[in-house]
Design a protein around this nucleic acid. Structure first.
Lengths: 151, 151
DNA sequence: TTAGATGCAAATAGTTTGCATTTGT
DNA sequence: ACAAATGCAAACTATTTGCATCTAA
């Protein structure tokens, strides 16, 4: 890898944590960063292969795992339970609302959890580095739609 | 099914939603309710089979899906990415802290998200029925442990 | 009675492994 | 130079499917 030109902040974080900046990892990172915040593992696999088919399946999964451990990503379930959707955790956190009918994901920024986080750190004696907040319900369209099936 | 004796509130909810109270569903429900709030799909499968090996795999997965759609459960990732862990959503919500080193899960009750939920309902024009809040970080033990590997 | 659920077993899909080889640093 | 990471392909695990049969309401 010699494209030292445009090291994204996340790539730098990788290096600082002592991991090698390999082609596989950088490609996975690139795919994730250009995926609007949500990608399933299969989508990542597909897009990585499309970009460079010499990158193996296993390395993609290994990268996803690594990024999860580094709190760069977080897997979550949207819709089917077969494949996780990975969401980017820009500053260690992510927040969205999932429509349980059409599976649309609506992101939002604000959450006032710093205080709660601080309180939990003392109360539970833990060291918090990030969080994910998900709301579930119906989006406006689905709410107004005559329900096709019971739910 | 004729054990109308002890219909758990969740079983009643099932019936009210128009679903049949079948042996498969009630068994899965029972397993979940006696699993301390966290079970992987494989654990559910295993325990259901142990209780009644005439219940098929497929029905277990179908039940897990149904309960998820009804916001009785919510799949999440803890540790490995291969199998989801299902958490019970007692009143439509659940909160916990996951240690990213030892995967211990520490639950906590309070969260002040009602206000935020209400605000989002008007701002995003959605109808919220539940939420999941997860914090990530290190538990005290892991924090004090000499780190075995870089993280 | 009958739509809704089921169990089965086979098909899919998704993920992980061991190991020889390659590659960042 | 050399530990770390990779690609491969096979093994493994998890989930879904189609359909004939069964069952709760």
């Amino acid at each position: 890898m010699d494209r030292h030109l445009s090291l994204s902040p996340r790539a730098q974080r990788l290096r600082e944590a002592g991991y090698k900046l390999t082609s596989a990892r950088l490609t996975v990172l690139h795919v994730i960063e250009t995926s609007g915040g949500h990608v399933t593992s299969s989508e990542v696999l597909e897009r990585v292969t499309a970009l460079d088919d010499s990158i193996g399946r296993a390395s993609v999964f290994r990268a996803l795992d690594l990024f999860t451990r580094l709190s760069i990503l977080r897997p979550t379930y949207i819709g089917t339970s077969a494949t996780p959707t990975y969401v980017l955790m820009p500053d260690g956190h992510h927040h969205h609302m999932i429509c349980i009918s059409c599976n649309r994901v609506i992101e939002f920024e604000d959450c006032e959890l710093d205080e709660l986080a601080a309180e939990l750190e003392t109360r539970l004696k833990v060291h918090i580095t990030g969080h994910l907040l998900e709301f579930y319900g119906l989006c406006d369209d689905c709410y107004n739609q005559p329900r096709p099936s019971k739910l």
